[in-house]
């Protein structure tokens, strides 16, 4: 049933033409703790995703770090608080800071989350899920227009882990993500771990969601290990990627012409050499699914 709705959306809203994005390969979410190790393992890292917010009003050493990374790797700026789902609009100052980082880096694309981090002028400090409603879609559309007026680099949006679901939800996950992409001409940063965790916690078929998404708009993937806590999966970003997530990642790569895959480890960060096996495994899957 949900699939039928998604098809209808595609038919009523033709997708504007978008320039093809170049493939970046398999990379890593940059964490400063790895700085001294990256050049010793550079053959395993095709590109880095940087947290754009860390370079707003950056100190000279941070700017030097950005310059070093930019001179040696393709970079993708990833925002944390654009708050594309805020009903009170986009924070102009945040947008300008984000734009400045994007202009400095000149990336193939940039990204943020399908979430809100600010409401009523108050920073929540957390990626909060949106109700999957037509009203949310309108808010996202209006906010995206403002962002796209300001930043010409393609913006892609990431699905988040949902700690709550709203009784008002009007769409399934696939419908909601599909509509956001199709109606706004934005790509999807599909977080495989988030999708897996939501599918387990809310009991739906993750792969079925992927099958119903507009495949050409799945630009990038995130993956990392999570953990179980009190019978629920938690997006802890602190563990080696579990087999179930690898299987989902492989399936997605076989379905969508993904341009980049990022391992996103944020907690209990091990030495870089300990992450290399995961990067290499992802690279094998990527090369197998998407030949150069």
């Amino acid at each position: 049933m949900a699939g039928a709705v998604a098809v209808a959306v595609v038919e009523t809203k033709p997708v504007p033409a978008r320039e093809p994005l170049r493939s970046l390969g398999v990379g890593l979410g940059y964490r400063p703790v790895h700085r001294d190790e990256i050049f010793a393992h550079r053959s395993s890292i095709d590109f880095f995703e940087i947290v754009a917010d860390h370079y707003f009003s950056a100190s000279p050493p941070k700017l030097a770090e950005l310059d070093l990374l930019k001179s040696n790797f393709p970079l993708i700026p990833h925002g944390l608080a654009l708050s594309i789902g805020s009903a009170d609009g986009i924070d102009q100052r945040y947008l300008q800071d984000f734009q400045r980082v994007v202009e400095t880096v000149q990336p193939a694309w940039c990204s943020d989350h399908i979430a809100f981090t600010r409401a009523g002028g108050i920073d929540i400090g957390h990626l909060t899920p949106l109700p999957k409603t037509a009203a949310s879609l309108r808010v996202i559309r209006d906010n995206l227009r403002r962002v796209q007026d300001c930043i010409t680099t393609p913006l892609i949006l990431e699905n988040i882990t949902e700690s709550i679901r709203y009784p008002e939800d009007e769409y399934t996950d696939a419908e909601f993500l599909g509509r956001i992409c199709e109606e706004n001409n934005v790509g999807l940063l599909l977080d495989v771990t988030n999708l897996y965790i939501n599918s387990v916690n809310y009991r739906f078929d993750a792969l079925e969601v992927v099958r119903r998404l507009p495949k050409d708009q799945i630009v990038q993937l995130h993956f990392v290990g999570g953990r179980m806590e009190d019978g629920r999966w938690v997006d802890s970003h602190d563990a080696t990627t579990q087999d179930e997530i690898w299987q989902l990642l492989e399936a997605i790569l076989s379905l969508a012409p993904v341009k980049g895959v990022i391992l996103e480890r944020d907690e209990k960060i091990p030495p870089l050499k300990d992450l290399i096996p995961e990067l290499e495994r992802a690279r094998d899957l990527y090369r197998h699914a998407i030949p150069a």
Binding site: D36, E65, D67, L68, S71, N72
Partner: peptide, 13 residues
């Protein structure tokens, strides 16, 4: 100079 600075930064340890 930039190249050398990048090297010295990358291999700071």
């Amino acid at each position: 100079k930039n190249f050398l600075r990048h090297l010295q930064s990358a291999f700071g340890k």
